[in-house]
Amino acid sequence: MVLLLAAACVALVIGSLVSDQFAEQTVAGLATGGIFGSLALALVLIYRATEVINFAQGQMAMFTTYIAWQLMQWGIGYWGAFVLTLGIAFAGGVALLAFALGAVFVRDWTFERMGIKQAGGGVIAVVIVTIGMLILLEGAAAWIWSPEIKSFPSAFPTRPIRVGGVAFSIQDLGTIGVALGSVVVLWVFFQFTKVGLAMRAAALRPFAARLVGVRVNAMLALGWGLAAVLGAIAGLMIAPTIFLQPTMMDTILIYAFAAAVLGGIESPAGAVVGGLALGVVLNLLGTYVHFVTSELRLPVALGMLLIVLLIKPTGLFGHRVVRKV
């Protein structure tokens, strides 16, 4: 697996040295892929913590980006708004989980009152809450800020830099940097900190984790919060190019799903690599393989996914984890 990836990277570098267009398309693909990857990573975090696919992930990212815009409208500078937004996103992610769990609790309680014991299906219920959230957030954004397209400032200058004959967009390079940076920070957090370790424990074996002192619910909430932060970063990075719109993340989320599954839905590294690979492959296919027109992009992405899953059902980076009942 690692060999295959290394080979792919070498091929990309050689291609980039040979052809300017190849280099430009690769960098542009990495930038979009970085966005897919961040969002995919957010999905994976939540999936690992609670086995829930968070369908509202894209809308949460959209909504928090609007919040950043609003803060800037009120006169707060870019980085101030950036940091505040990440904080708000974190709180929002925690609140969403609390809300979803609360909804499940109320439902079970009501059922118990009605004499129906053990409603079960908590995961499904939470998934449905996220779908409801998706609709709610999109509507709320349109209602609060109007559906009009709005421009959004970039953290990076719009001018390109030239390397040889190739013009790279500073914004694209910045996006790649931020996406990879946040992934590294998260990796370090999960790998080397006490809380990170506890979060992993809570996600893997909640009962055992509880009995070694891990506050599982707090860790799950933390996971949702971090996922929301990642989503917000993705939104802030992509908004300067695609502008603010309540529907801005709709398709991106589909690609992020594909990236997450491609990488193995339980693997954070897989999600990021899956996102980057998807971004680059789609750009290069569209450039050099002529039957891959834009309407075929999504089918091709899903086709790739299917092939990977046929060869390796757990995704590129997935482990087969046997679970007892």
Partner: peptide, 28 residues
């Protein structure tokens, strides 16, 4: 109070040391 489980409940994708670290943090 600490316990083990009949059907082992280790954290599968963690290393052996990380598993023990989670326990060690309980009294750290």
């Amino acid at each position: 109070i600490a316990r083990t489980f009949q059907n082992v409940e280790v954290f599968p994708t963690m290393t052996v040391l990380e598993n023990v670290l989670v326990g060690a943090h309980a009294s750290s």
